[in-house]
Simulated scan of single mutants.
Amino acid sequence: MPPLEINQLAIVFPAIDPVALQIGPLSVHWYGIGYVVSILLGWWFARLLVSTPRLWPEGGAPFGKEDLDDFLTWAVIGIIAGGRLGYVLFYNLGYYLSNPLQIPAVWDGGMSFHGGALGTIVAMMLFARSRGFTAFSLLDVIATASCFGMFLVRIANFINSELWGRTTDVAWGVIFPNGGPEPRHPSQLYESFLEGAVLFAVLNLLIWKYGKLKSPGFIGGAWVLGYGVARIIVEFFRQPDAHLGYLAGDWLTMGMVLSIPMLLIGVWGMATASQRSVWRTQRPETS
């Protein structure tokens, strides 16, 4: 199909300002709003899960709303520190070795989802250990709540006209203002749908209908597996980072390489969940 005909069928990127609100010198971006709203929604949903006794083994959840309130700060630190470090190590190490003072400059962009996930998991392990319950149960709750972030932040990526997909001739291809004249897959919206909406629906089915919070690590494993599958699928449509390109042929990307181990880890987490207790040590006596 000739390029002109493709462009006639494509969707021109809507004129959405990445800045949602301007107050004097202060610019509030949709991307930042996505993070804040998703953290608040995730916090609310996590509190809902721990306050529903029938979802847990006899005696209820091993941690309460107050524990989640305390963990929120740990989670934010894990997301930011892990996400930035992951981006530096996995996606642009050469640049940051030459410009080490730019490593803390998160305001200039550059965050890795895989790094943020690892940072949050480390925060969970440390926090759960300090409170005496298994990190797997905390992972189950936080993983499900994180779907709000994957849904909203990917939409913000679309608004920012970043992380767009490969060129395409499908009718819903979008001509991004900084993506050249050819239409591209709106891969940000694909990710928002698969990693956010679909994964959230699957996890909630496992939680509310099948009671899988009673098996620590099952929901967390399902989330790791589900995200890995969704990300690998989307990588076939997403344009790889310009400074990395394809790692092999015209299909293998860094996103795929980082997601493949998630498949194995997710299956392991689900397969071994029935062997765990929600308490890392003996449950404390209650008065």
Rank of each mutant, 00 (worst) to 15 (best):
M256A: 07
R276N: 03
L258W: 02
A145P: 01
F133Q: 01
P261T: 13
R129S: 12
E162T: 02
G82C: 04
T134S: 12
P181G: 03
G221V: 13
V141K: 01
S259R: 08
S27V: 13
E285W: 13
F90R: 06
I260C: 12
W74D: 04
L72P: 01
A46M: 01
P100L: 14
S274T: 13
Y190C: 10
M150C: 09
L205T: 04
L189A: 09
G228V: 10
V174D: 01
E285M: 15
D108T: 13
R238G: 02
A20E: 01
V257I: 11
Q22S: 14
I121P: 05
R283W: 05
P104Y: 11
G119D: 10
N204V: 04
R238S: 09
E235Q: 11
I207R: 06
T144N: 09
T286F: 05
W279K: 07
A273M: 08
G221W: 05
A46E: 00
M150R: 10
I142T: 07
V229N: 11
V106E: 11
F136E: 02
S51W: 01
Q282Y: 15
V202Y: 05
P186T: 00
F136K: 00
K209V: 12
V106D: 13
H185Q: 11
S130V: 06
G116E: 05
